[in-house]
Simulated assay, not measured.
Amino acid sequence: MISPITLDALRTLDAIERRHSFAAAAEELYRVPSAVSYTINKLEEDLGVALFDRSRRKAELTAIGRLVLEQGRQILKATEELTALARQAAQGWEVELRICIDSVLSCAPVYDLIEAFQRIQPKTEIRLSEEVLGGSWDALNDGRCDLVIGAEGAAPAAGFAVHPLGEVPFVFAVAAGHPLTQLPMPLPASAIHDYPTVIVADSSRHLPVRSSGLLDGRSRIIVPTIEHKIAAQCRGLGVGYLPRHRITQELAEGRLALLTLDTPRPPEGISIAWQRSNTGKGLKWFVDQLKHMRFYADGRGLTKMQSPSTPKV
């Protein structure tokens, strides 16, 4: 059954209620008052209900009329949003942009980018997700995200565009007062065999999982993110490697202590990555901004690249 409630009828009803008269609504809609009255009378006739109480000097909405108006305004708003989204998509802007942040990075720099992006394109919905190790590549390969920030290692397949951000140094950390802090440095691998390792689980669903910083032959505590790993190690539940830039506060407050192993872990290269076939304007904007950023191992993390100092004359 085709509904007699048309968008034109809803706009007319909305204008009458806002302008408080049929005549004023007609002026707003660039119609003659008789055309406005006809639209409402036809709607009432087709619905078989009275939308206005005309027994008074001034026509007022009935309870049913108020219901139709309130629900109708939601329809009008949804229609306006759909129109804007259609025009937005036609111009190349994404309706939704999905950004995956690898757990090794903090989200703070990405929030700054999103704030700047909203000022130029507020209609694109941003969806953030967090993945670990191979999970970032898996999300991109599987179509669960459009852009990865902080992807570790090399791309697992062709078709990805990749831009390096830098290298993340990892340090071996334990809770302050841990028995290992009483031993001479550097520690041999055998010295830590009696203590559990806190491991962040690879979040990959389809691609082969990656291991990172595993110390074999030991009991393990498996957590979902770097944030959970930091919290577990601060409580002394286990030991393990952590990204140096993520634990500056814990070190400053004395909740974690750094130890030196006789075989240190090498830094991990991280990148941004996206599908080459994706030509969305929102994706391009984020990629362009990120190409002017770099990961700094001195504690600043991911931030804008520093301009080279001007040589002295």
Results as ranks from 00 to 15, higher is better:
214 L>N: 08
9 A>C: 14
168 V>G: 07
238 G>E: 01
286 F>Y: 04
12 T>F: 07
113 L>P: 11
89 A>S: 15
290 L>Y: 05
297 A>I: 09
300 R>I: 06
54 R>W: 08
201 A>R: 12
127 R>A: 14
240 G>H: 02
278 N>V: 05
45 E>L: 07
30 Y>H: 13
6 T>P: 15
225 T>W: 01
18 R>P: 05
148 V>Y: 03
155 A>L: 02
88 Q>S: 15
307 S>E: 14
86 A>I: 13
111 Y>H: 15
197 T>R: 03
304 K>S: 11
176 A>G: 02
99 I>V: 13
59 A>R: 06
2 I>C: 12
304 K>W: 13
9 A>R: 11
63 A>S: 05
187 L>Q: 03
166 G>T: 08
16 I>M: 12
185 M>Q: 15
149 I>N: 05
283 L>I: 09
66 R>M: 05
59 A>Q: 10
202 D>N: 06
150 G>S: 03
149 I>H: 02
12 T>Q: 07
289 Q>P: 05
40 I>N: 10
74 Q>K: 15
216 D>I: 08
223 V>S: 04
56 R>F: 06
261 L>F: 04
306 Q>G: 11
278 N>G: 07
267 P>M: 01
152 E>A: 06
110 V>Q: 06
174 V>A: 08
30 Y>K: 10
293 M>V: 08
43 L>P: 10
300 R>F: 05
17 E>N: 11
234 C>L: 00
73 R>L: 00
200 V>D: 03
89 A>T: 14
153 G>P: 02
57 R>M: 12
14 D>C: 06
104 V>I: 11
13 L>E: 14
209 V>K: 14
190 S>W: 03
74 Q>Y: 11
20 H>P: 02
96 E>V: 14
307 S>R: 15
46 D>L: 09
5 I>G: 13
225 T>P: 00
284 K>L: 11
87 R>P: 05
210 R>N: 08
229 K>S: 11
237 L>V: 01
176 A>I: 00
65 G>H: 01
147 L>H: 03
31 R>N: 09
300 R>A: 10
296 Y>E: 14
189 A>R: 14
4 P>A: 13
234 C>Q: 01
302 L>D: 10
246 R>K: 04
301 G>P: 08
82 L>F: 12
164 P>S: 12
161 A>L: 04
13 L>H: 13
187 L>D: 06
47 L>Y: 08
81 E>N: 15
95 V>I: 12
184 P>T: 09
120 I>N: 12
133 L>M: 05
279 T>D: 11
144 R>N: 07
137 W>P: 04
223 V>D: 02
43 L>A: 07
257 A>Q: 10
228 H>W: 00
153 G>W: 02
276 R>W: 06
9 A>V: 13
207 L>D: 13
27 E>T: 11
97 L>K: 05
253 E>S: 09
67 L>V: 03
33 P>H: 12
188 P>E: 14
109 P>M: 02
15 A>D: 13
86 A>C: 03
149 I>E: 06
172 F>Q: 02
99 I>Q: 08
175 A>N: 07
284 K>E: 14
29 L>D: 10
